[in-house]
Design a binder for these strands. Sequence first.
DNA 1: GGACGGTGAAACTTCAGGTTGCCTC
DNA 2: GAAGTTTCACCGTCC
Length: 489
Amino acid sequence: MRVKISKETANDVLNLALDTLRIGKQALIFAGTKQGAEKTAEEISKKAKTNDAELDKLSLQVLQSLSKPTKQCERLASCVKKGIAFHHSGLTHQQRAAVETGFREGKIRIICSTPTLAAGLDLPAYRSIIRDLKRYGNYGMDWIPVLEYLQMSGRAGRPKFDTEGQAIAFAGNDSDEIYKRYILGKPESIHSKLAVEPVLRTALLSLISTKFITTQNAIMDFFSKTFWAHQYGDMKNLGLTVSKILRQLEEWGFITSMEEFRSALDEDEKINATAIGKRVSELYLDPLTAHHLIQCMQKTETDETFPYLQMISSTLEMRPALRAGTRDHDNIQELLTKNEGKLLIEEPSPFDDEYGEFINSMKTAWFFQEWIEEKDEDYLLEKFRVRPGEIHSKLEIADWLLYSAIELGRMLLLRNTCRQLMKLRLRVKYGAKEELMQLLKLKGIGRARARRLFSHGIKDLAGIRKEGVQKLSEIVGSKIAEDIKKQAG
DNA sequence: GGACGGTGAAACTTCAGGTTGCCTC
DNA sequence: GAAGTTTCACCGTCC
């Protein structure tokens, strides 16, 4: 089928989008990066001539999803005003929901998105436009998986409304390659061998700790019957990986064999989870991460925050860590010097493979440090290029890791460290300095109000009791003033 | 003559996603 | 590897 599109601008993605608007249909546009998605949405919205009171309402909703709108919020809001939106992991939950329902209801005509929408959500459109078929990966720029292409093009056509759908991919100079790869090519198998180890580690420990499996033979037997082994194909290799992981788990003290003097695990030997191994499994923690946390905590008992932030920032769970660019170089060097001798993970040689990952984890830790120093989201967006939604997801992971670390620390009787970590967890949760801790215990008081109270000299519950409702009302509003007065007793 | 502003090309920077736990001093 | 962003030199205009 041939479709003629008028060449209104030099940008064909833009032309296609404008054409979609003209024929009164909806489109999803897939871009390779968040920046790319935002950019295309913005370009289209500048050319779109939509005007609608409903959209104004939606736009306002998007803008006010945070107490203080960031530049990203403003950008999205101005797009939505024109019936265009972008969608990626850096959006807040409310924003995502607003964009999705807005599209389902037909108010939003075009969404420019990263592959988020293709995988998880059922959001069909008349046109599915794939702008980028290449993406930056571990080995430079590379083709996206066939599976992903199918998922994106599969969004075209809405079964209930359209009799047809169009999936359009932008080819550039590689149309032959694209035809071979994506139209004729087979999707790759679901499991990749590289991703196996963390999952296998967690699964193994869980099987052992629930006493579902007690010998290595039984383990191999179990895995040979799973679909997973079928996918993995090579049982011999899987066997080697399994015994390697078992040895690691033993070394880390998460499992024991009955005859402890034997260094290697015998195949019929009984295997049990240790108390701490059991807890690790209950926490759904990757044993490697658990081991890392334990080692770090046993190394120090500091009352500084940065070492612990570095500890949680250098886990697999926290990946992808924030990328450190050249403009961060000086700041990170300064951090390294300032924390010399206190870091829980030593700086590797710059020639080491891990060096880049180390620097990234330093940047992530630094980001958390700034967060608990009460820097606002706009500042963080500017300085770290972290979007609001990402801030939340990183904080959630941080909270979970800190919780896990506290649990493990408690079992290891690291009382002092646990106390520090509990304080830190609260600060990470609220993004506040330690001096606000007392006030944050109150319901309805977050870091913003706590800071306002504090700067008026009200520093704790006693301070609230002393102050009159009138004065409190001026600071935090009358409803909350009454409420916290009640809470303070 | 100098402040200001627009333009374009070169240099530089950055690059997807999302599941896990919960009362504990 | 390539899109997006920043920087900077260059030119023209207005006062």
